[in-house]
Every structure is written in structure tokens, then in C-alpha cells.
């Protein structure tokens, strides 16, 4: 018992160290966000003597118009990915049908295509489809991209669920949709939560594609919209960092929320713990 307490303490210390290093950039981001231009040039680690709270004012005014867009897109993407990939992963994991393996590998192979390669052909296509300057032009490709990894993760998880659970459902004559909805999904909360967080984050931080496809100011997401923080031929980092801080707040909220609801330990169903 004492041994365990000692081990726990050591673990806590090490973990704190790791978290500190992982979070270090966030600290710098916060520090830089209140500095003046001169002080930023004078050194990244220096503590500011000339605190510029108005960086946040400027950032706020720039970020707010775009926040709704980022939120809408990210939520739509998460919902889309969860629905589409759950269906597909369930099918791939629990059914046997002709062509199952080739289909699965074809989907996984999509992860191996460098995205920058696809930029121009994809743009030509969405231009021809008249999707430019709409939310869809950002949502649909993001859902498509997010599903690939999601299917990869979910299929592995679904396949690992023990057979016995399904037996009992099937004996009661449940339809397939019910099995998915009532049995599999509740058990898969941790992995679904992971998928949700991952896709929210990727969608939120996607810069290049929205920059290229959305020119209407009113539709731009945050990371694309917060430009012209330039005062000089290099960027004005103070307000820019403040903008990044503000932009990451919703992200933090979402993570907190999803950690609570989805990854709160496995209390439902017959899963080992």
C-alpha cells in the first residue's frame, strides 16, 4: 500500500512535468498576447513591462464576427462525421459481405494521400459545383476527410466489442439500426468523444482550404479571418496571439464538455474495467 502511494506520487510528479512542457507554448501565447511590438522583438521569454490589454480589445473586435462561422462549421462537421462514420464503421466491423476488405482498405488508403496535392483539383471541382463561398464548401470536404480517420478508429473499437452482447440483442429480434443505436453507440462513448474532439479541433484550425474557397467576409472562419494584423512587413504578434487565445477558448470549452460526457469512465453496459 505504501508502495502504491509512493508510485502514485512519482507518477504525479512526472505527469506534471510532462504537462508543463506540453503546455509551455500556451504560456508563451498568453505572455505574448499582452506585449507591445517592441517588447516582442526584444525577446520571447521576457516578461512584459509594458502591458497592452488593448491587444485583446483589437483581437476581440476581429475575432467576434468570425466566431459564429467557425462554430457552425465545426459543429456541423462533428455531427456529420459521427453519423456517417459510425454507420460505415459498424458495417465494416460487424458484417461479412462481399468486398468488405477491399472497401475498408480503399478507405484507409485515403489517409496516405498528401492533402496539398489535392488542393487544386478539389478547388476546380467545387468551383464547378457552385459551392464556393458557402458553408458547404468547407463542411463537406472536412467531413469526408474526418471520416477516414474516424472509420479507422471506430471500426477497430466496434470489432473489439464482445460477441455475447450482440447475441442477447439479436435473440430479442432487434433490427440492425436499433442494435447500433442502443447497444454499440452507448458503449463507444470514449472513442466517439475522441473522434468528436479530434474533428472539432481539425475543423477549427483549418486555414488553407477556407482561405482559398471562401472570399465572403461574412462566412469566414476565425483562423482565416484574423488577418491584417500587420503593422510592418512582419506580423503584429501581440494582437494575433490574443486572437489565438480568444479563438481557442471555445475549443477548450468543447473539450471540457466532451471529456465530461463522453470520457467519464465506463459506467454503462457490461464492459470490463
Amino acid at each position: 500500500m505504501r508502495n502504491q502511494r509512493a508510485v502514485s506520487a512519482v507518477a504525479a510528479v512526472l505527469l506534471s512535468l510532462f504537462v508543463f512542457f506540453s503546455f509551455f507554448p500556451v504560456l508563451i501565447m498568453l505572455l505574448t498576447s499582452v506585449k507591445s511590438r517592441l517588447e516582442i522583438s526584444l525577446g520571447i521569454f521576457r516578461l512584459p513591462t509594458d502591458i497592452r490589454w488593448d491587444n485583446y480589445g483589437r483581437a476581440f473586435r476581429k475575432v467576434i464576427p468570425y466566431t459564429g462561422n467557425s462554430l457552425l462549421i465545426a459543429v456541423a462537421v462533428v455531427v456529420g462525421v459521427l453519423i456517417v462514420s459510425s454507420l460505415a464503421a459498424y458495417s465494416l466491423a460487424r458484417y461479412r459481405f462481399p468486398g468488405r476488405e477491399p472497401i475498408y482498405y480503399s478507405i484507409i488508403a485515403l489517409m496516405m494521400v498528401p492533402t496539398v496535392l489535392v488542393l487544386i483539383p478539389m478547388f476546380k471541382m467545387v468551383a464547378a459545383l457552385h459551392l464556393l463561398n458557402s458553408y458547404w464548401v468547407v463542411i463537406l470536404p472536412q467531413v469526408a476527410g474526418g471520416c477516414v480517420m474516424a472509420v479507422f478508429l471506430l471500426r477497430s473499437f466496434f470489432a473489439g466489442l464482445p460477441e455475447e452482447l450482440f447475441e442477447s440483442f439479436r435473440i430479442d429480434g432487434a433490427r440492425e439500426g436499433t442494435v447500433l443505436r442502443s447497444l454499440v453507440l452507448p458503449l463507444s462513448k470514449p472513442i466517439l468523444g475522441t473522434v468528436a474532439v479530434l474533428n472539432f479541433n481539425t475543423s477549427w484550425n483549418d486555414y488553407i482550404w477556407p482561405m482559398v474557397t471562401i472570399n465572403k467576409e461574412s462566412l469566414k472562419p476565425i483562423v482565416t479571418g484574423i488577418m491584417s494584423f500587420t503593422n510592418d512587413y512582419s506580423s503584429d504578434y501581440g494582437p494575433m496571439m490574443a486572437a489565438y487565445v480568444l479563438a481557442s477558448l471555445p475549443l477548450m470549452l468543447v473539450i471540457g464538455f466532451s471529456m465530461r460526457y463522453f470520457v467519464d469512465g465506463l459506467t454503462s453496459g457490461a464492459v470490463k474495467a
Partner: peptide, 15 residues
């Protein structure tokens, strides 16, 4: 999402 599709529409017809 429904709201988004109503607001965003299918984008302007030619960029």
C-alpha cells in the same frame, strides 16, 4: 445544421 443550410445556401452562383 438545418439553420446553417438555410442561411448559407448553396453559395453564390459563380464565386
Amino acid at each position: 445544421v438545418l439553420g446553417a443550410s438555410l442561411l448559407g445556401g448553396c453559395g453564390s452562383s459563380s464565386g
